[in-house]
């Protein structure tokens, strides 16, 4: 049988397509099977959440202990240019963090005052919905996790996050880290990063670093699924607000009023 060069190229193109198609179908089918196996609903026993008391936080003016503890441990670079900065936890003026709550008569105690903000670890996270590679996903304990090995840097999650909680590495961050912590990786250029609720510490049974670093105990971390936990006790006892609850993302970071 004689094959012309054109036919050969056509055939090889078609076979390549067939291989790709089979792979894709296999991957999709595999996923289907997996989710079917997970069908018997597991009762959620852990749902990590944070309760913040802004009044306590404001007691010590200019305190940045939680920020520096977090950023140092997680090798978060210090980039002064706000266009390129990377931050996991930071202070945001009240009226920016709670844009819809703001009024000209907002309590003087809060007007212009900084509020600690970080990833809300939403129960219904838009960033997870849009990520094309599952480089960010929601764990069973509610943590919105990131896989920096898989992130392709499309920044769709940054467009999707209604809280501006995500940062992108516009270049290699290492030159901007004054003291490398070898126990935690840095990030490479071209990936998105954010707070992970210190999942590496939770794995060892420790509380997140910001919680530990706060001298006023203004940040309380705990399990919402446990009715006896401190976070539940606080939320039962006091009125709390969340950022942009109207978007249906169900943030798991609560601010006590």
């Amino acid at each position: 049988m004689k094959i012309s060069r054109k036919d050969f190229l056509r055939l090889s193109g078609l076979s390549l397509l067939a291989v790709v198609g089979k792979k894709a179908i296999g991957a999709l089918a595999g996923k289907g099977a997996q989710s079917a196996a997970a069908l018997p609903a597991v009762r959620v026993t852990t749902r990590w959440a944070m309760v913040i008391d802004p009044a306590k936080c404001l007691k010590e003016e200019g305190c940045t202990k939680c920020i520096s503890a977090c950023h140092k441990a997680h090798n978060v670079p210090t980039i002064n240019d706000p266009r390129h900065e990377v931050k996991w936890i930071w202070k945001e003026p009240f009226e920016n963090a709670f844009a819809s709550q703001e009024s000209a008569y907002t309590e003087a105690a809060l007007q212009g005052k900084p509020v600690m903000v970080f990833c809300n670890h939403c129960d219904n996270p838009p960033c997870v919905r849009v990520c094309p590679t599952q480089a960010t996903w929601k764990r069973e304990d509610g943590i919105v996790m990131m896989d920096w090995h898989r992130c392709i840097g499309c920044r769709y999650c940054m467009a999707a996050c209604p809280y501006g909680s995500r940062s992108f590495n516009w270049f290699d961050p290492r030159p901007y880290i004054s003291e490398l912590n070898p126990d935690y990786p840095t990030r490479t250029k071209g990936v998105v990063e954010k707070c992970t609720f210190c999942e590496e510490r939770l794995a060892k049974g420790q509380a997140p670093l910001c919680v530990e670093a706060c001298p006023e105990k203004a940040l309380v971390f705990g399990n919402l699924a446990d009715p006896k936990s401190e976070v539940r006790r606080l939320l039962d006892a006091r009125f709390s607000i969340r950022r942009k609850p109207e978007l249906g993302t169900h943030p798991e970071v609560f601010y006590l009023v």
């Binding site: 094309p132 480089a135 898989r150 392709i152 499309c154 992108f168 250029k189 071209g190």
Partner: peptide
């Protein structure tokens, strides 16, 4: 526009 262009096939 990709930050990590070498990983772009992760989408597939």
């Amino acid at each position: 526009d990709m930050g990590q262009p070498t990983r772009v096939l992760n989408v597939m």
